[in-house]
Amino acid sequence: MKVARRAVCALPLLLLPAARRPPRLRPAIQLFAVRRELAADAAGTLRRLARLGYRSVETVGTFGHRPAAFRQLLDDAGLKSPAQHIMPEKLGAMFARAATLPDGALRRAWLEAFGPDGIDASIREAIAQARELGQRHVVWQMLWPEQIDDDSAIARTCGLLNRAGTLCAEAGFSFALHNQAAELAGPAGATAWDRIMAATDARLVRTEIDFAAAYRAGRNPVAMMREMPGRAALAHVRGTPVDDGGAMLHDMLHAARAGDVEHAFIDYERLDDPMKIVARDAAVYRRAI
Rank of each mutant, 00 (worst) to 15 (best):
M1P: 04
K2T: 15
V3S: 12
A10Q: 14
P12Y: 07
L15F: 04
A18K: 14
R20F: 06
L25D: 03
R26M: 09
P27C: 03
Q30E: 13
L31F: 08
L31N: 08
A33K: 03
R36C: 01
L38Y: 06
A50T: 06
A50G: 08
A50Y: 09
R51S: 13
E58R: 15
T62W: 02
H65V: 01
A68Q: 13
A69W: 01
R71V: 02
R71A: 15
L74S: 06
D75P: 09
S81M: 09
S81F: 00
P82N: 03
I86N: 00
P88A: 02
K90M: 11
G92R: 05
A93N: 12
M94P: 10
F95H: 12
F95W: 07
P102A: 05
R108Y: 01
W110V: 11
L111H: 14
L111I: 04
G118T: 09
S122N: 06
R124I: 02
A126N: 07
I127P: 08
A130P: 14
E132W: 03
E132K: 15
Q135F: 04
H137M: 09
V138G: 08
Q141G: 15
M142C: 09
P145E: 12
P145V: 12
D150Q: 02
D151S: 13
R156I: 02
G159P: 04
G159C: 00
L161W: 10
N162A: 05
L167A: 02
A176G: 07
Q180T: 12
Q180A: 04
Q180Y: 09
Q180F: 05
Q180G: 14
A181E: 12
A182C: 03
E183Q: 14
E183A: 08
A185E: 15
P187S: 05
A188M: 04
A192W: 09
W193Q: 04
R195K: 13
A198P: 08
A198T: 11
A199P: 08
A199V: 00
A199M: 13
A202I: 02
E208C: 10
I209K: 01
D210V: 10
A212N: 10
A214V: 08
R216G: 00
G218S: 07
R226F: 01
M228Q: 01
R231P: 02
A232Q: 00
A235S: 13
R238P: 04
T240I: 07
P241K: 10
P241E: 08
V242L: 13
D243A: 13
D244L: 14
G245A: 09
M248A: 07
M248V: 12
D251N: 11
D251S: 14
H254P: 07
H254S: 10
A255M: 12
A255N: 13
A258L: 09
D260C: 04
E262R: 15
A264P: 11
A264V: 06
F265P: 11
I266N: 02
Y268V: 06
D272C: 00
D272F: 00
M275C: 03
A279Q: 15
A283W: 10
A288P: 06
A288G: 05
I289E: 06
